[in-house]
Design a protein around this nucleic acid. Structure first.
Lengths: 364, 364
DNA sequence: GCGCTACCTGTAAGCGCATACATCACACTG
DNA sequence: CAGTGTGATGTATGCGCTTACAGGTAGCGC
């Protein structure tokens, strides 16, 4: 009933099917090179021995693993019991979407995906780097210097984060999202198309480069339109729904004129604010406009549907795999590339735009 | 700029730091066994050589990889371009949550996670099985016979699916969710606490064992309460929002008395139905009660908040890792276990229950 | 000063597979 | 019938590391 003895190897299969280990190996790696009847015989033996080729041995011998990797940060509560019970946390994360994008793309290219999160920049990199042919790292998960050293010997692509992070890194490919452009465009939309001028930007406490870029995009649009704004966000809170609700409360109770619009640095906060405003009896968008950033699925489902900027996270995962595969296949060998994925402003009811996008789930 | 030569090995590090390869190895595997100054010297050399131990070689030599695996089905549109643009599909999937649960739990135990999806039961199992110390498989991804053969040599746990699937499998551990109990309990709630008797169950087209169990739970509750129902679901549609909306429309237009409640086999369909009913001017829960199943995050965010049954997907991932680790550490060696995770009915406004749970995101 | 122990380091033998190369059988060609 | 090519298989080596086991050195008590 329990695990029975050591796993069978090529030697076992070879012996029992009366061939050499080379032939067994060929049955798996290069089946056409083996006579059909031999092949069948070997496979039959393998099957009833429960033989599975050792990935480690194969990796060693062939100098490639057939696996791509991803290192991502996990900011979650270390106490997983709590995290599991936490609704807010159960929403789809940034990284989940990248994982899915990468896994699908990797599979298309015949690779599997090895993932390893890290809490405080632990050295899971080494664990990953050593067992994959190439890997992606979400920005700020691993020190750039360490990555650069590894990237000298194996393809590495950095995801998100600003380009400056990879300046001076001669080997890191880089993919980022047009945070700046997206927030600027959304802000421009509010100013020009909706005629708003009193705007409050709510950023996050962590100094995420992405959030910084978004805020700069916001500033740029304001300056371009001659709208007065502070050089600092109106508020900084954590990027959760609860905190977004709190932010809305704070801004409402802060003296002076109520802003015409709350621009949140992500959707989660914006959704929280929507609820807080509803409780206060303020109507969105009539009394105040609310916008988010990310384009998470529920941004479309809240009432009113949330105007936001859609980030192509799945695409980012795919693009990462593409870059890695290009390097691995030798199609590309030169200097590192730095690509920027476009984002799309998604105007919905929370900024006063038509209901057409909010019509419902049927409207694909 | 490009990848420069072969990766450095223990030999390179050993040579340049004037020690033997055994010492280099010990620096990584058993640092206390090496004199501190030696250790530092080796690490320094390793660092500036960009040395990373080869996972394959280590795996071969030590007969363990430090990696756990997960095989899951991916029903998504093979055309990823389309899938990426598809909102419905961008919702958090079943598997995403399991992946996250497993990754976190694996990390706590010092393992990384290797994931491989499969479209039509391709043999990604072999790819995974060969490179991990143990792995989990979501039901119906891989033929049970094949799994059983592998499970003779390495811990394997089957996730979800009915217990019958692992009957006769002497080596497969098994984790399932109390689908039957959950749906029965929810149904009982509608019948007894809300006094409803005309219930319509909407199942899915695929004959998922989980959905079947849910339907049986529904039937059991009806029979127990003496409520008349067909032996077949009122309708079978795909498990998407769009299809849920369509289902609601069909049921509304079907002649005869309108059911008092629509019980959907999952949340996605129920959310779709909510929108469809709103369009038709029907009020939930006053005109008709709607319930879902799964407890996905957006079930709490739609209006009205959706009564549902919460499935502990993160827990399932954790439990899978726990089982694997127990086997690997030799803490457990006997017959396979089959555990059932409890679910919780979450009564919310869509069945007429209090608004307290729907108060907002702040209410943790 | 001797033997003993404790600690550190080196030696060497694989781990299971891929693969270049050698071998062999078997047509075919001329 | 020797000569030559072709396809199937075997032989042998090494991939980079872990890990007994075997030294070697220094400290200790007597």
């Amino acid at each position: 009933m329990s695990v029975s003895g050591p796993a069978p190897t090529v030697y076992d299969v070879a012996e029992r099917s009366g061939v050499s280990i080379a032939t067994v190996s060929r049955v798996y790696r290069n089946p056409e090179a083996v006579r059909p009847e031999t092949r069948e015989r070997v496979l039959a033996v393998a099957r009833d021995l429960g033989y599975v080729p050792s990935g480690s041995a194969r990796g060693l011998a062939s100098r490639s693993t057939g696996v791509l990797g991803l290192c991502f940060p996990d900011y979650s509560d270390p106490d997983v019991e709590a995290a599991a019970a936490d609704d807010d946390d159960a929403a789809m994360l940034y990284s989940d979407e990248i994982i899915r994008g990468m896994e699908r793309a990797a599979r298309r290219h015949g690779y599997a995906l090895l993932i390893a999160g890290s809490l405080q920049g632990g050295s899971e990199v080494a664990k990953v780097a050593g067992r994959v042919d190439g890997f992606a790292v979400i920005a700020r998960t691993v020190a750039t210097a360490e990555l650069e050293a590894i990237a000298r010997r194996q393809p590495v692509v950095m995801l998100a984060g600003p380009r400056e992070d990879v300046d001076g890194a001669d080997h890191l490919d880089h993919i980022e999202v047009a945070n700046f452009d997206g927030q600027r465009e959304l802000t421009r939309h509010l100013i020009e198309d909706h005629g708003l001028r009193r705007l409050a930007y709510i950023a996050t406490g962590e100094d995420s480069p992405d959030v910084q870029a978004r805020f700069r995009g916001f500033l740029a649009a304001c300056h371009a339109a001659g709208v007065e704004v502070d050089d600092e966000p109106a508020l900084r809170v954590w990027m959760t729904q609860a905190e977004g609700a709190r932010a809305a409360d704070v801004l409402c109770e802060r003296g002076g004129e109520l802003p015409q619009a709350f621009l949140f640095a992500n959707d989660q906060m914006a959704v929280g604010a929507l609820h807080a405003l509803e409780r206060r009896g303020l109507r969105v968008p009539d009394d105040v406009v609310v916008t988010g950033f990310d384009g998470i699925p529920l941004s479309r489902l809240v009432r009113p549907p949330l105007t936001t900027v859609r980030q192509p996270m799945l695409r980012m995962g795919e693009a990462a795999v593409d870059l890695l595969v290009e390097r691995l296949s030798g199609q590309r060998t030169g200097d590192p590339v730095s690509m920027m994925l476009p984002v799309a402003v998604v105007p919905r009811a929370s900024c006063g735009c038509g209901e057409e996008v909010a019509a419902g789930p049927g409207g694909r």
